[in-house]
């Protein structure tokens, strides 16, 4: 069974991430980690507050060693990389990757290393190529790769790059990704005879 959903977004991501999270049924209990590119000086807390208005899941700005718990949404803090260890998050100030910190590649690759085939990666809109290598790593480790259909994305560079780097399991319009995740993560209750 899957254990973690990772979402990466850049340009246009604020509204896309909000939309996607709002679409994910509460029956999906997997923790969700998000790397959204932001201005390094971006006020911490603002993205969390924005999302809190749109969704019911608790949203957390990750601190060092924050434990990974079901149902929660975790945000990479501005100007730190967000990494996944088994059971908890780690942060780092390593150099920017592809000009980005947080880097989607760093999040996705560490998630794949820590959780193997139990990771679902989702790449949304963006104007750079961050995330492509990370999604390929998730896929190589047996996880699931989902990419927003570039044709409907506010910026298509990022989904295009992700599709060039790996064979995605699903290429979907934004409004259908939530439903797809539901199908992946929620096993229909088997009625006992």
């Amino acid at each position: 069974m899957y254990e973690l959903i990772c979402i990466g977004a850049s340009w246009g991501g604020l509204s896309a991430v909000g939309r996607l999270l709002a679409d994910i049924s509460e029956d999906v209990t997997l923790p969700i980690a998000i790397a959204q590119h932001r201005h390094p000086g971006a006020l911490e807390g603002t993205l969390r507050e924005l999302l809190a208005l749109q969704i019911r899941r608790p949203v957390t700005d990750v601190e060092d060693k924050t434990p990974i718990e079901p149902c929660r949404v975790y945000l990479a803090p501005p100007d730190y990389h967000l990494l996944v260890e088994p059971g908890s998050f780690a942060l780092s100030l390593d150099e920017r990757v592809q000009f980005a910190r947080p880097s989607i590649d760093v999040l996705f690759e560490s998630a794949a290393d820590a959780y193997g085939d139990r990771v679902i990666g989702v790449i949304l809109t963006g104007a750079n190529e961050d995330g492509a290598a990370g999604l390929a790593r998730i896929k190589a480790r047996g996880g699931v790769a989902i990419v927003q259909d570039p044709r409907g994305a506010e910026r298509r560079v990022m989904p295009d790059a992700a599709l060039a780097a790996t064979v995605a399991d699903a290429v979907l319009p934004l409004e259908e990704i939530g439903k797809f995740l539901y199908g992946l993560c929620v096993t229909p209750a088997v009625t006992q005879r």
Partner: peptide
Amino acid sequence: YAPASLRRR
């Protein structure tokens, strides 16, 4: 040291 970023480096 925390392994995830160590491994990257």
